Amino acid sequence: MPPDLPPFTDALSRPAEGGSTLPFRPWPSLVIFDCDGVLIDSEIVVCRLTAEEFTRLGYRVSTEDVIARFAGRPEREMIADVEADWGRRVPEEFFVSIKARVQQAYATELRIMPGIVDVLDRLGTAACVASSAYPEKLRLGLETVGLYGRLAPDVVSASVVAQGKPAPDVFIYAAGWMRTPIPECLVIEDSVAGVRAARAAGMRVFGFTGGRHCAGGHRERLLVAGAEQVMESFGELQGLVPAAFWG
């Protein structure tokens, strides 16, 4: 962790020079949630469909491979990697088919992450979303589970920045959007790329392994990437940052 970041605290004031007390906001003053695999249990669905479509078109890859290589990264970067490995362009058929299949799967398979509604109900600090998903998919997922209305307009897609995760751009943009200093931000991330992006942005980050795509060893990978803590469920969050919650 960068040495200049503040420690966890529930305090509402701190001593200033000369012994006086200055008010300050408890850390964190902003919680930045990733979307896929954090707010919605979508990674397992999308990665399975992606693997099926690539394999059908001749680029053989498993669901586990897609999770390991591309989870948390923007689609445009996944496509660039596949094309470089495959030695050919991904056909337009892929994009048409995957969009239709994701829409259908979201309507029947998508689940909201257990405990997130309670967290949002009791969170006493600002919150926003910073995701690698393109805006239409991001909105579709959040609307399907009933979260878009309560989080919009503070929903940021990496499509608005130059580089996706693991570059820090989307998190820096989100902090600016929310007018919050970098050291006051806490990121909740399920992917190695996302954890690295948060750390590169100078933010503190908790890993999350509550999604169905998080197989054995994922907790350790998030810690190695730089996560301070790793949660298996959102029930753990208040105990880790009590100052961010009401009551």
Rank of each mutant, 00 (worst) to 15 (best):
Val192Gly: 06
Phe95Met: 12
Met203Tyr: 04
Phe70Trp: 11
Ala100Val: 08
Val46Pro: 00
Phe208Lys: 01
Pro15His: 14
Gly207Cys: 02
Ser20Gln: 12
Val82Thr: 10
Arg111Glu: 14
Gly217Lys: 10
Val129Asp: 08
Asp4Pro: 04
Phe234Asp: 01
Val66Gly: 06
Glu136Met: 11
Pro23His: 07
Ala174Gly: 01
Asp65Thr: 14
Ala227His: 07
Arg221Pro: 00
Lys99Val: 09
Val205Pro: 03
Ser29Val: 08
Glu228Pro: 03
Leu140His: 08
Leu142Pro: 00
Pro242Phe: 06
Gln163Pro: 08
Tyr106Asp: 15
Glu43Ser: 09
Ala16Arg: 13
Arg14Pro: 02
Ala80Val: 06
Pro114Leu: 10
Cys185Met: 04
Leu5Lys: 10
Leu237Asp: 05
Arg199Phe: 05
Arg122Lys: 13
Thr55Trp: 07
Ala133Cys: 06
Leu123Phe: 12
Phe94Asp: 09
Glu109Gly: 03
Gly217Ile: 10
Asp34Pro: 07
Pro74Ile: 04
Ala152Tyr: 05
Ala225Ser: 04
Val160Cys: 11
Gly235Ser: 12
Pro242Ile: 07
Arg111Phe: 11
Leu142Asn: 09
Cys185Ser: 01
Phe171Trp: 02
Ala162Asp: 13
Ser159Pro: 08
Asp85Phe: 03
Gly37Asn: 04
Lys165Ser: 00
Ala130Met: 00
Lys137Pro: 10
Val155His: 02
Val145Lys: 10
Gly149Val: 11
Gly202Tyr: 06
